[in-house]
Design a protein around this nucleic acid. Structure first.
Length: 261
DNA sequence: ATGGTAGTGGGACTA
């Protein structure tokens, strides 16, 4: 049995103490971080190692993006891909000793205008998702878990107001369709929704809201998927809403699952 | 319809 968490940390150096608090309070075996905004050599590893997280596989860059997998269990680096040729650190994979492969993704946010003719970033987001689809189709993943900030809330109950967000990047039908194609290509099962099928679920609340908790205008942008051969081992999914209320928080909160393997 | 906040790095860009 092992537990896995995913969290867009929005600067791992600024929020080193928050990461340490999560590792102390929840002690997931594996923590996948996105938006570390740091080169690999500047990730503050010493404190994490002192808490038992001695294994790391990461890809970083200065100032933007960046993904890291911290683990109490031994990890082998399983490579990365430059989806859509952006040259960004948005994907890394690692393998556990039990043969489970973990993919950690940070899908581009896609800018504000949901039209690739008017907004280059939106086109890049769609291209990134299309290349994810093609890679999953070619690789036919098995015994795999994929987590990350996918920057799309696919279901009506993954957003605070479905109708109001249909033209808002992160919930447009075109993005949902692209994400669904990537999910289908790898036969991925949404573990969070397998465990918690009903009701609204959010993992992100904008910094721009005056009172995020009272307004509760959230979206479920952070996901944990697994291939069908191990999906029924996934249990106990949680989204740690209170973390959004920690001091100087990320705008995302951790999403967790347990795998009885 | 608009603008609201946050991080990096000390601009303007990204989210």
């Amino acid at each position: 049995m092992f537990t896995i968490a995913t969290w867009n940390i929005n600067s791992v150096r600024l929020r080193e103490a928050l990461v340490a608090r999560l590792l102390t309070e929840e002690a997931p075996d594996v923590l996948c971080l996105q938006e570390i905004k740091s080169p690999v050599e500047k990730i503050p590893l010493e404190g994490f190692q002192a808490l038992g997280y001695r294994h790391i596989v990461a890809r970083g860059q200065k100032g933007y993006n960046g993904v890291a997998i911290l683990s109490k269990l031994p990890l082998a680096d399983a490579g990365d891909r430059d989806y859509a040729g952006l040259g960004h650190a948005r994907h890394v994979a690692a393998r556990l000793e039990n043969g489970v492969t973990i993919h950690n993704f940070y899908v581009p946010a896609g800018g504000d205008i949901p039209d690739r003719e008017q907004n280059l970033k939106f086109g890049q987001k769609l291209d990134f998702l299309t290349e994810m689809r093609d890679a999953f189709h070619a690789d036919n993943p098995a015994r795999s878990i994929m987590v990350g900030d996918l920057n799309i809330a696919p279901r009506e109950d993954d957003v605070w107001n479905h109708k109001a967000l249909l033209k808002i990047v992160s919930h447009t039908p075109l993005e949902v369709e692209h994400l669904g194609a990537a999910q289908d290509a790898g036969k991925w099962v949404d573990i969070t929704r397998k465990d918690i099928p009903d009701g609204r679920l959010y993992s992100w609340w904008s910094y721009r809201a005056r009172d995020w908790d009272a307004a509760d205008k959230g979206r479920r942008l952070d996901h944990i998927w697994a291939t069908p051969d191990i999906a029924n081992a996934g249990h106990g999914s949680r989204i740690l809403r209170p973390v959004r209320g920690w001091e100087q928080p990320s705008d995302h909160v951790p999403v967790l699952a347990r795998f009885d393997l």
